[in-house]
């Protein structure tokens, strides 16, 4: 009888330990995901937005005259761009340094990649959906933006440029243009 009670206590203790360890692991993973989300800015797309890829050029925010960088009233900027076989429009995106940048982009045909070197920006442009990324570029620089998702026979020629300029220079551009790009500069 005592021997039986002893082994039951041992079993219960072992059960408790294993339980504690596995719950600990689960909680550690949950907090790890939260930590990365908060401190490294790895956030999923905030909401799913759709758009008709065949009519991007006709109406809505992705018509060619509305593409490029827009200064927002709150001091941040919004960049709108599209990927299509085999170029980005605009081909060169200009943004101010040390400012919140919201990128809204989509594809007019097949899946393209959207990646800005030396930054956290790395997503896909899926026809029918709008990809939204929020980022910040610390200092003036020039970066490449290759399409990194094979999109057809001319894929290797598909990339764009990002030009990060200082805030004052950007404000000067924004004074007389509503949508800014650095195409052909």
């Amino acid at each position: 009888m005592t021997e039986h009670a002893d082994s039951a206590t041992v079993a219960a203790r072992m059960e408790r330990r294993w339980g504690t360890v596995s719950i600990g692991i689960i909680l550690a993973l949950v907090f790890m995901a939260a930590y990365i989300g908060v401190h490294q800015g790895v956030m999923p797309q905030p909401r799913v937005e759709t758009v008709d890829p065949r009519t991007l050029h006709i109406a809505g925010e992705f018509i060619e005259s509305n593409l490029g960088t827009a200064a927002e009233p709150d001091g941040s900027v919004t960049v709108r761009a599209i990927g299509q076989q085999y170029s980005f429009t605009p081909q060169c995106i200009v943004v101010p340094a040390d400012t919140q940048v919201t990128i809204r982009a989509t594809s007019a045909d097949v899946i393209h990649g959207f990646l800005i070197e030396h930054s956290n920006v790395n997503t896909m442009l899926v026809p029918g959906y709008i990809s939204t990324i929020v980022t910040r570029f610390p200092a003036p620089s020039e970066r490449l933006m290759p399409c990194h998702e094979f999109c057809g026979a001319g894929h290797e020629g598909m990339w764009g440029r990002i030009k990060v300029i200082n805030k004052a220079a950007f404000a000067k551009l924004a004074a007389d243009q509503r949508r800014m790009t650095c195409v052909a500069q």
Binding site: V48, T50, I58, I63, S65
Partner: peptide
């Protein structure tokens, strides 16, 4: 709903800038 992937419209942003030249209205399909 957002996290579950339901389609949501973005809050209306600034007005769309229209081109001062005519662009094509044709839908290729």
């Amino acid at each position: 709903c957002s996290a579950a992937g339901l389609v949501r419209a973005a809050p209306a942003g600034q007005p769309v800038v229209q081109a001062n030249y005519k662009t094509t209205d044709v839908i290729l399909s």
